[in-house]
Write a protein that binds this DNA or RNA. Structure first.
Lengths: 206, 206, 206, 206
DNA sequence: GATGAATGAGTGTTCATTCAT
DNA sequence: GATGAATGAACACTCATTCAT
């Protein structure tokens, strides 16, 4: 990519990034159409290629950018020493919420990118993907859930929490919901699962 | 579509349907390629158009077919009078599992179709989609969860169950898992959520 | 390339080959435009790619075809045991003339191809090019010119003959001359050079 | 074109002219790329258009410039009263050689321009082309070849000389040969043809 | 004067669709 | 019914040209 992209007015950079994120998130790499981005963002076709060289180049750029940006927000919002799974998850969701305020389709794009099959692009994207996954995994791996000592059960609860959250994000972003509302709904589900999980195993106070 | 399709040998019909389901599920409507189906199924390009008129026609046909087939299995497997949410859900998942044995990509296709954005196709598909959703909604609406009397809370638990299940299906089918294994994993999660939900509110036996 | 090209009516094959030869000869590989061929030949754009896969594929096909066809005419017209340079050259020019009757731009194309710089294409074309050059070189290498015994001088005469002939072909084909007229002019120049060369060194009859 | 071009430092003018000559000579008008010139010469894209208005404008400028420059060298080097064809030709080649020292691609450019087919450019270029051709033709028309009295024969010899020379220039310049070496080779061929021609018709001294 | 970001028409290539066989 | 050759609109990408700085 052409580094001079960063000399553009910030607002234009973001408009281009958001346009790319949305079109890639909705259509996947192969079917994402440059023309759609042109229409969505109002920037000429030639300019995309001036800065990013190719559709693949653009894809890789927004992927790396997304991972960097998300990691940045995580680093300012997440307390790495937090050992409670639900507390940590809420912090993670706050970071994602802040990211979504600037880039509404970023999370959806990252989600979609995980299923991307075009090798031209997955090869180049692999490293950043691993970096992000490992970071999140490292944070969550050793968190605890009060009253749930069985590791397999704890992992299942972690997983259903993750699936529930990502399901909500997908559903709500697709229907254009407001970011704050999505975040509030996610927190409500986290709290629900937490109550269910923590109270469950508590031995009855006899 | 051309009704004579149903005069073809059953096996050929199913080969064509499965080919279409797989290609549509993996690529979405717009990027699904006729050539891919031709290669996957070994039936000439002209024939697809002879029977279905257009790619959109084919899409709509397999959509309607999928809904009908799923409703059929539900009608034989699901006990409509079952009022326990988790029991009903397990029955629903059994129906889906049986569907998947004949048409491995049918569920993924229906899931993907929900996010379909191509208006040429969503308009025509809406009605069948509504029929299915209403059927499922009607079944689940009045089901109960032992020990959870608050309606809002109950609905949240129902939703997280649904999201968890559909997340698992997507994840596992994408990685080519065997249908029975997927079904078993889903049942395990249903049981987990059930335990968590039912025990939660139970007042400690003093 | 798709071998079914050869199942087309011979006349259509030749129209396509001639169109490609002309456009490639006039513009070189990179600037030769598929649209120009479409316009010149009246065959849809998609079909070119159906048969030849890519512009490079088409280029390589017509190159190989040209070499084969020229070698074929040479094998029927040229007497390999002919040792007189001018006799052999006339035979070669007859072969080229016969080729030009079916494919007026074939010679110009081969000439232009020798200066081709696009590596995508030169790599694939090299072998056929070598085959042709070696054949012609082998034929001419040992030919004699009556009365010219000095090898360096003989080679110079051979070269100026070649340059004169190729200059005439280029000049006349560009201006759309009739093939027979070009051939007659070439023969006249060969005879002229022959006279000049053979009589030159003859010691004066004293 | 903008006359202020001539106010630029001479060295910059020549760099730009040589860049244009080379790129046009190698690629022809249509495929000659502005970017290639920019890279080759190190002058911004905008500036080319500031001075020459369009790619066609630049082409026409360098064409006219080339013709003027070549005519200028001819006027200082060629003795217009020279009536011997070969002497005159050697003088012409000397003029061309001197031109090539300052502008190595000028001759190749003029040669290539003769085959140019882009009408946008050939129309504007025609006049200068005619001027040059007529000048050369006028010089050569009445030259004699010792011992060759037949006009048709003489014209053929003149033509084969011209074709041989231009063939050598093309071949050697393409392979990057040094100008002096090319000039020497050309002189050798002129001498060869001269010998062949002059001795040919001489009646044996009895 | 000098730059290079920005534009959009044009190019090679793909793909849904038609149609002669 | 069944095939696949043939079409042309749409896509990714390039390049001459313009224009704000």
């Amino acid at each position: 990519m052409n580094e001079k992209f960063f000399d553009l007015p910030r607002e234009k950079q973001d408009r281009m990034i958001n346009g790319a994120l949305e079109v890639f998130a909705k259509n996947g790499f192969k079917h994402a159409s440059t023309d759609d981005m042109v229409k969505a963002v109002g920037v000429s076709k030639g300019l995309w290629f001036h800065y990013f060289g190719s559709k693949a180049g653009l894809y890789i750029f927004v992927y790396d950018y997304s991972v960097k940006y998300l990691l940045l927000e995580m680093s300012t919002v997440v307390d790495e020493s937090e050992k409670n799974f639900f507390e940590l998850t809420k912090q993670l969701e706050l970071a994602k919420n802040r990211v979504s305020r600037s880039y509404p389709y970023l999370l959806l794009f990252l989600e979609a990118a995980q299923n991307e099959e075009d090798e031209e692009v997955t090869a180049q994207t692999l490293e950043a993907q691993k970096t992000l996954q490992e970071k999140v995994f490292a944070l969550i791996k050793n968190t605890e859930i009060n009253g749930v000592d069985d590791r397999a059960r704890r992992d299942k609860i972690k997983k259903l929490t993750a699936l529930t959250i990502s399901g909500i994000i997908k559903e709500r972003t697709a229907s254009g919901a407001e970011q704050e509302a999505v975040y509030r709904e996610i927190k409500a589900y986290i709290e629900l699962i937490r109550e269910m999980a923590e109270r469950t195993e508590k031995p009855p106070i006899s």
